[in-house]
Design a protein around this nucleic acid. Structure first.
Lengths: 130, 130
DNA sequence: GCACAACGACTACGCTTGTAAACATTAAGC
DNA sequence: GCTTAATGTTTACAAGCGTAGTCGTTGTGC
């Protein structure tokens, strides 16, 4: 159904790539060096690693480049919301039959919910119901 | 730091492996052939594939075997709840700063919540609050 | 003008994953 | 007893991933 082949089904973004995306979502456009500055300390990567990840993300059309002199400025093409939504749905589908309530129940049961969480969720529910 | 090598940090279970686990969680113990019967149709796998996945799961200590004549009966060692909990937490940590409320907010915003979900979650909340 | 530094592109390489065939063993039927 | 079917083990192999080095180009400081 409406899946022509120029329809880019978004290729999956790996864990390491995701870390790079987070950097760009936080601030962009950035040069490769700037991305490394932000992320290499935490993940203990070298600049070449970041460059590889960036080009893979460009290939996957999750990141776009704009030339700036002899270098590139990288910006996210994929919106964080879309990524996050996709991943959340994937998890729900795989583990909870696509339903949100069991996921929620699981979190509750694991005591993964803080009081603040509960309050927030209540507020959201109230909004949803009207 | 206290990471002796008999300390089993649970190795990650891949997508394909997860499908096999679901089969065993649904019913166990099963023979390899029975697992295939349950899962090969849907995923379009052959018996050898299932066998490979089963042995990888045994290596990862997610599945245990019991000899039954010349063949094996396979049972889950890893509890579904533990797996599901781990995966849920992973997602929450990676994408929502470890908080449940933003995850929930995202689901709500994507209209991934059915009326039934909402009702169930309300009930759960009520329980949590007392 | 030339050496050098910065940068992207290309290449590399071991590991995991998805998928499966080949092989060895053994219980079972004839 | 011998063939065969079932079953676990070993091996295979391409793609993806994590991690990084090398190469070629080009702007820059002297």
């Amino acid at each position: 159904m409406a899946k022509s082949e120029d329809d880019e089904r978004p290729e999956r973004i790996s864990d390491a790539e995701h870390a790079v995306m987070e950097t760009l979502w936080a601030r962009s456009p950035l040069t490769a060096a700037e991305v490394c500055e932000a992320v290499c300390a935490e993940r203990d990567w070298s600049l070449p690693t970041v460059k590889t990840l960036l080009s893979r993300l460009v290939t996957k059309q999750a990141v776009e480049t704009r030339p700036d002199g002899r270098r590139f400025l990288y910006s996210p093409l994929l919106a964080r919301d879309d990524y996050v939504g996709g991943e959340s749905r994937r998890l729900m589908d795989r583990l909870f039959g696509g339903r949100a309530a069991p996921l929620f129940a699981h979190l509750a049961q694991d005591e993964a919910l803080t009081d603040a969480d509960i309050a927030e969720i209540e507020a959201l529910l109230k909004e949803l119901k009207q």
